[in-house]
Each structure stands twice: as structure tokens, then as C-alpha cells.
Computed example of a mutant assay.
Amino acid sequence: MWPTAFLICALSGLLAGCNTSTETSTLALPFYNTPDFTPVFLENSSEIEVKVPHRIRKFSFVNQNNETISEKAIEGKIHIANFFFTSCPSICPKMTNQMKKIQDSYRNNKDVVLLSYSVTPWIDTPERLKEYAQHKGVISGKWHLLTGAKGEIYDLARKSYFAEENIGYTKDSTQFLHTEHFLLVDKSKHIRGIYNGTLELEIQQLIKDIEILSTEK
């Protein structure tokens, strides 16, 4: 049976290309260009700059090790972002556990980085984030817990990551930011997926989608 199957594959490969790998098409995941998360599907990478101008913009915050982390930390890397606070009694502990699953799935992949931005930065100092990181098993260099000026974090969350379900950037920094969303961002800082960080099935899909992004050319 095996030689016959191989021969069929070889012959059909002359006509249509015989692909025995699991590699996906170049742009298998949609792009998200607006805060209403209308998916934009592209067939050719040459269309990206024209049809998907939105990217995660420049930023600069401090992580749990009191290190300055900027957009340079995600340059040429896939990253997953979420928004949390260490004193959150509701959804944040579950989201942190889910982020740890993602971290552990890609702990040896240097092209995957996790960013968790504190939405109570006036409470979540680097020292407090360090203690939280040690308690939750956060790997330094792989997963950054970030703090900084409240207005800058909220602005980045709403205007760059479109972090809330509603059109986030119509809100101002006086309105508390609390969202269960995880955002998947590609190596060029384009948003490629949004997931509910409290749901196991969506986290499993996110892990699969990271793998898909890693195959993009």
C-alpha cells in the first residue's frame, strides 16, 4: 500500500503539488484593522500595507524586573497581550493561569513573547509584579508583566490593541479598563486574533493559531 500511495502522491505532485506537511497557507489567519474586529482576509502579502495599516504602536513600560520594555521587545516576534491587575479577585487569576499555559507551550520558542499590562499601575509596582511573577511561575524574558503611566497603558490598550468589546477608544482614561480578551499579534505588529482568556477552548485555539503564524513567510 505505501509504495502505491507514494507513487500517487508523486504523480499528483507534478500537477498540483503534493504537500505531506502540515504547513499552512501564507496568510491563513485574518487581520484586524478596526476596533469592531471585522476580519480582513488577504490572499497576497503585498496587500497588507494598503489594506491593513493598523499596527501596535510604540510604547515604553517597566516589567517585573524593573527593566524598560519597549516595542523593540516584540520586533520580529509573535506576541500575545492581555490586561490584568494583581489584586483582581475575579477573572484575572484564571487569565494568568491560561497565559501560563501559552508560556509553557512555547517556552523554548524565542519568537513568541507574552505581555501582560497592569490596569492598576499605581498599585502594581515592579516589586509587586515581581512577587506576583514568582508566585505564578512567570519566566523572565519570555513573559513581561508591565506597569507604567495609567493614561499611556489605557491609551495603548484601547487605540492599539482594541482591547475592549465596544469601540474602546471612545472612552477616556477615567473609565476603568477590565477585559478578558487576549490579543494575538504577528511579527509585523498586526493584530491577527482575539480570544476570551477565560475559556479553555479559545486558549487551545490561540495556541494552534500561534503555530499557524509561525509558518507565515
Rank of each mutant, 00 (worst) to 15 (best):
S25V: 12
I69D: 02
E67T: 07
V40A: 00
F41P: 02
I80Q: 03
K72L: 08
E47L: 10
L42F: 05
A73C: 06
V62E: 00
T68Y: 09
F37A: 12
H79S: 13
I80S: 10
H79G: 11
R57K: 11
F84S: 08
S25E: 09
K51L: 14
I74D: 01
K72V: 12
K72T: 09
E75S: 10
E47K: 14
F37N: 15
F31H: 06
L27S: 10
N33E: 12
K51P: 03
P53N: 10
T38F: 00
F31R: 09
V52C: 12
H54D: 10
K51E: 11
P39T: 09
S25P: 05
K77E: 00
P30I: 06
V50R: 15
V40R: 02
R57L: 13
E75F: 13
F37H: 15
F61R: 01
T22H: 04
N19C: 11
T26Q: 13
T86L: 14
E47T: 11
P30Y: 11
F37Q: 11
L42Y: 08
I56M: 04
K72P: 03
T86V: 12
E75G: 05
E23R: 15
P39E: 00
L42I: 02
E43K: 14
S70W: 00
N33I: 04
F37P: 02
T38S: 08
P53M: 08
N65T: 03
V52D: 02
P39L: 05
N19S: 11
I69C: 01
I78K: 03
K77S: 14
R57F: 02
I69A: 05
L42P: 02
H79R: 03
K51C: 00
L29M: 07
E23P: 03
L29G: 11
E67D: 11
F59M: 01
F83K: 05
Y32K: 07
